[in-house]
Design a protein around this nucleic acid. Sequence first.
DNA 1: ACTAGGAATGAGAATCATTCTAATTAATTA
DNA 2: TAATTAATTAGAATGATTCTCATTCCTAGT
Lengths: 147, 147
Amino acid sequence: MVSNTDSSEALAQRLSDSGLRSTPQREVIYNLLLKKRDHPTAEEVFARAKPELPMISLATVYNCLEALVQCDLVRTVNFERGPTRYCPNLHPHAHFHDTKTGATHDIDLPAGLIDQVKSILPPGFEASSVEIIFRGKANTAPTQPTP
Amino acid sequence: MVSNTDSSEALAQRLSDSGLRSTPQREVIYNLLLKKRDHPTAEEVFARAKPELPMISLATVYNCLEALVQCDLVRTVNFERGPTRYCPNLHPHAHFHDTKTGATHDIDLPAGLIDQVKSILPPGFEASSVEIIFRGKANTAPTQPTP
DNA sequence: ACTAGGAATGAGAATCATTCTAATTAATTA
DNA sequence: TAATTAATTAGAATGATTCTCATTCCTAGT
């Protein structure tokens, strides 16, 4: 099992690789993103952090989230002009935005898809990233009630 | 050649199909989007409309753009949380955002690509739309100077 | 043509997410 | 330990968009 100390040190390492410091606020926020991976907004992160860090300010939440994005532990997701949402990254994935419920789902991308999509670019276009956003209804079956 | 009246009437038709009225402001704004297809923001549209309609207000620009979006003559494009940009639609296309210059380029999508991308969705996900955004550098050769 | 009722417009206030500022605190290095 | 540098906090400021509301414009129905 991964101990708390291990993940703290991994985070500290990642941060310092980007010239940033590890702080209690950054640790709490990163762990909270890992615990509930539902693409919270900064305000939601703020609310979830408060019980652990009652004095934390919204500005710090933004600062911490930006730090985590900078060291590539977290990705931002935007739908239209809604508030930015944060997702503890790793695998390449697309996002499915349920227009009914507002929920965001990660969609794993099969190997090669990104390259295949990039291959439609005319000469002269060098894409460093490709973002794919689906919109629609997700019929995510609720946890099956035992009959 | 398509006369001004023709396009006006086409616009009027589209608008009234969506229960909206044709107005001078909406016509000017739609024509201006068609004339320079560089994905302007509302503020930019505002600036371009003023010479023709000195009394137009920014609120009206937003209203008109929304009307055009509603009757499917115009699409919105968003990059992160930057201002919404407007693009007179029609073909299915992706967007390439030049991170160096900020310019937005339309990328035509080959037939079938959208369906192919949709096919990666796990069961239960019904996508009504797929958006593809590329980011990177575009080496769009400037209009070749005759030697 | 005339008028009632519903849109659309214009001007400015309000809102929302985010960024900035300045003062304070904490951590790291000399 | 002192000096530097970064991070935190609270609140002000910003920027895009939406809202409000008074006014004007159309459109039906008479």
